[in-house]
Design a protein around this nucleic acid. Structure first.
Length: 542
RNA sequence: GGGCUCGUGGCCUAGUAUGGAUAAGGCACCGUCCUUCUAAGUCGGUGAUCGUGGGUCCAAAUCCCACCGAGCCCGCCA
C-alpha cells in the first residue's frame, strides 16, 4: 500500500461531504489542470456547483480552482507537491513510502518447457512477469517469483530420447539436445516406433523409475541452465524453481486424483472431470497423469505458502486456465487470491515461431545483436570512451532496450518482432530514458548546489514536479490492473517532462540554480525508483 | 462450426476498465536548433472515414448488436 499526501483523495473527500460523487469522477493530469472533476452528471447549475465546491475547499495546497466547460479544474501549488516528494524522500528514502503488507505474493512466470533455448516469443512472459513482480514488491506486498520446471511429460521425454537416439556418445549440450529434439519431431511421422518408445519411457517414468527420472532431470537441467543464463542477461532472476517430477515421485498427483475421485468419471481407465459438456482428462488410459492434474497439484502447493498467486501465461492457456480455476474453486477450496495474466503471442514478420521447426530468434541472438548495435553507436557518438566503458554501457543498453520494447506494449496485444524496431535507440525507447537520466546526473555533478524550495515555479518546472508527484498514481494503476506497460508509459511521460524542462530552463551558473537542481535531484531519485520497476538499467554516463 | 483476444495516420503504440474538453506519442519523410548544462535530444510541418454498418445517449475510439479481417483455443499435448 502506498503512503503519500494524496491531494486527489483529500479533494475528493471534501467534495463528498456535499455531493455524492465517485472516485473516478476525478481524473489526474488532464490538459487543463492537475486534477479534473467531471460535472456532467450534476443536476445543479454548473456555476452553483463550482462556487459551492470552491467555498468549502479551504486547502493551502490548492493554487486555484476553475470552472471550464463541464469540468472543474484544480490546480495544485508546485511547492506543495515538491514538499510532499521531498519530505518522503528525506524521511523514508523513497517516494511514495509504502506500508509493508503481511501477505505474500507469488508470481509464476516463464516456466518454459526446457526443450530448447528461450526465444523472443517466450521472453515476453519473463519480461512481463519480472516487471509485475518488481511493481508488486514496490507496492509493499512481499513477493517472489517461481519457475515451474516441466521435466515430465512427452516433450521432455522426447528431448531425452533425442539424445539417446541421435547423440548418444556426445556430452549433452543445449545444441545437440535441441537438434535431437527436433529430429524426434521430424521423424515421428514416418517412424511409428518412436511414438512407442516415447510412450514406454513415459510409463517407466510415471511408475517412478528413479534412475530414469534422474537422467531426465539432468537432461532438462542443462537446457534450463541455458534459459536462466539468457534471463540473467536481461536482469531477470527467478527466486525459486519447482520441479514437476517431484509431484509425481512423491505421490502428490495420485493423492490429488484420489481426493477428487467423487467428481471423476472414467472412460476405460482414463479419468476425467466433466465441465459443462467438456471432458477434461486427468489421466490417460495407461494410468499416467496429464498436465491438467499436475497443474492442479502445483497450484494447491503454491497456495500453501502464498496468499496471492499470479500466473503469467500465453493466451493459448486461456481455456486451460478457465477449467483449472473452476476445479480449484469448485472442488478444492482453493484458499488464495489468484490472478491470471495473459499475453498475446509474439510473431516474426516472416510468420510464427516454433522451437520444433527451428525458426526462432533466440534471446541470446537478440542480446548479442543489440549489444553489437549499441557498441557501434557508442563508438561513433562517444569516441573518447574506453573499451570497458563501452562494454558496460552497451550491455546495459541492450538489456534495457529489449525489456522496454516488450514491456511497453499492453500484454494482451499481439506483437510482431522486427529487427529495425528492436535496434532503434531513438524515440520511445530505453536509451531515450537512460539519456535523460545521464543528463540529470551530469547537471548534478556540475552543480551540486541544491537549495530550499521556492514558491515560484514556471510552467516547465511545475510540469516536471507534477509528473514526479503523480508517480504513486501510476504505481497504483499498474498494481490494480496488473499492467507493467502503465509503468513504461509513465517513464516516457516523466522523461518528456524533464526534457522540456531541460531545454527551457538553464541551470548551471544561473540565479535559479539552487531551486532547479533541487528538482533535478528529485527527478533523479524517481527515475531510479521507476526504472527499477521495468528493468531499465540507468547509468550516470551513456 | 463454437469460444476468447486484437483491429486507432504509410508503420508501431497510448487512450477503451469508469462514454465527456482540440484523438496523444514514437518510427519514417520534409524543415529547425549544438561559442550555455550529453543532438541517443529539441521545435515545427505533412499525414487519422478510430476495421465496416447499425443502435443507445445531450455526448461514442470507448457501451450494445451484426458483419469483415488477423491471432489463439476447442488433444487421453503442455
Amino acid at each position: 500500500m502506498l503512503l503519500f499526501d494524496d491531494y486527489r483523495k483529500i479533494i475528493l473527500d471534501e467534495i463528498k461531504k456535499i455531493y455524492s460523487i465517485q472516485d473516478n469522477d476525478m481524473d489526474i493530469n488532464g490538459n487543463f489542470g492537475d486534477f479534473t472533476l467531471k460535472i456532467f452528471k450534476f443536476k445543479e447549475n454548473r456555476e452553483e456547483v463550482y462556487s459551492k465546491i470552491k467555498s468549502i475547499m479551504g486547502k493551502d495546497f490548492i493554487d486555484k480552482i476553475e470552472l471550464q466547460g463541464n469540468y472543474i479544474n484544480f490546480y495544485i501549488r508546485a511547492e506543495k507537491m515538491l514538499d510532499t516528494i521531498d519530505n518522503s524522500l528525506e524521511t523514508f528514502g523513497m517516494y511514495p513510502n509504502v506500508f509493508q503488507d503481511t501477505s505474500k505474493a507469488l508470481i509464476e512466470h516463464t516456466s518454459s518447457n526446457p526443450t530448447g533455448p528461450i526465444h523472443v516469443g517466450r521472453i515476453r512472459n519473463s519480461i512481463i512477469g519480472d516487471s509485475i513482480y518488481r511493481i508488486i514488491n514496490r507496492y509493499g506486498t512481499r513477493s517472489c517469483t517461481q519457475y515451474f520446471v516441466n521435466d515430465s511429460g512427452k516433450q521432455v521425454i522426447s528431448l531425452y530420447l533425442g539424445h539417446i537416439k541421435y547423440h548418444r556418445d556426445e556430452e549433452m549440450t543445449v545444441e545437440n539436445l535441441l537438434d535431437g529434439y527436433q529430429k524426434i519431431y521430424t521423424n515421428i511421422e514416418k517412424d511409428p516406433d518412436i511414438k512407442k518408445e516415447v510412450q514406454a519411457l513415459d510409463e517407466r517414468y510415471e511408475n517412478g523409475d528413479s534412475q530414469l527420472i534422474k537422467e531426465i532431470q539432468k537432461t532438462a537441467s542443462i537446457v534450463l541452465q541455458s534459459i536462466t543464463d539468457s534471463l540473467e542477461k536481461l536482469g531477470i532472476h527467478i527466486s525459486t524453481y519447482v520441479w514437476e517430477s517431484n509431484f509425481i515421485m512423491y505421490g502428490n498427483v495420485n493423492e490429488l486424483i484420489n481426493s477428487l475421485s467423487d467428481n471423476l468419471k472414467s472412460e476405460g481407465k482414463a479419468k476425467y472431470i466433466e465441465i459443462g459438456d467438456k471432458k477434461i482428462f486427468l489421466t490417460r488410459q495407461d494410468g499416467t497423469s496429464l498436465y491438467f492434474a499436475r497443474d492442479l497439484v502445483y497450484h494447491m502447493f503454491k497456495s500453501e505458502n502464498f496468499d496471492w498467486i499470479i500466473d503469467v501465461l500465453g493466451e493459448d492457456h486461456k481455456d486451460h486456465v478457465k477449467n483449472l480455476d473452476y476445479v480449484l474453486h469448485k472442488f478444492l477450496d482453493f484458499p488464495s487470491r489468484i490472478d491470471y495474466l495473459f499475453y498475446g503471442f509474439v510473431s516474426l514478420d516472416t510468420g510464427k515461431m516454433s522451437t520444433r521447426k527451428g525458426n526462432i530468434i533466440t534471446v541470446n541472438d537478440l542480446y548479442e545483436k543489440t549489444v553489437e548495435e549499441s557498441v557501434s553507436i557508442i563508438k561513433e557518438k562517444r569516441p573518447d570512451y574506453g573499451k570497458d566503458e563501452i562494454d558496460r554501457i552497451s550491455r546495459a543498453i541492450a538489456a534495457s532496450s529489449i525489456r522496454f520494447n516488450i514491456v511497453k506494449i499492453n500484454a494482451n496485444k499481439p506483437l510482431t518482432f522486427r529487427w529495425e524496431e528492436a535496434l532503434n535507440f531513438e524515440g520511445d525507447s530505453a536509451p531515450y530514458i537512460m539519456y535523460a537520466y545521464a543528463r540529470a546526473c551530469s547537471l548534478i555533478s556540475r552543480s551540486g548546489k541544491s537549495g530550499k524550495s521556492s514558491v515560484e515555479y514556471n510552467e516547465y518546472e511545475k510540469n516536471l514536479i507534477k509528473a514526479i508527484y503523480f508517480y504513486p498514481y501510476y504505481i497504483q494503476n499498474s498494481v490494480d490492473f496488473l499492467r507493467a506497460d502503465i509503468m513504461a508509459g509513465y517513464m516516457l511521460y516523466l522523461v518528456k517532462s524533464f526534457n522540456d524542462f531541460y531545454l527551457n530552463c538553464p541551470i548551471v551558473g544561473t540565479e535559479e540554480e539552487q531551486k532547479r537542481i533541487k528538482i533535478v535531484e528529485v527527478f533523479k531519485k524517481i527515475m531510479e525508483d521507476s526504472a527499477e520497476l521495468v528493468g531499465i538499467q540507468l547509468l550516470e554516463k551513456i
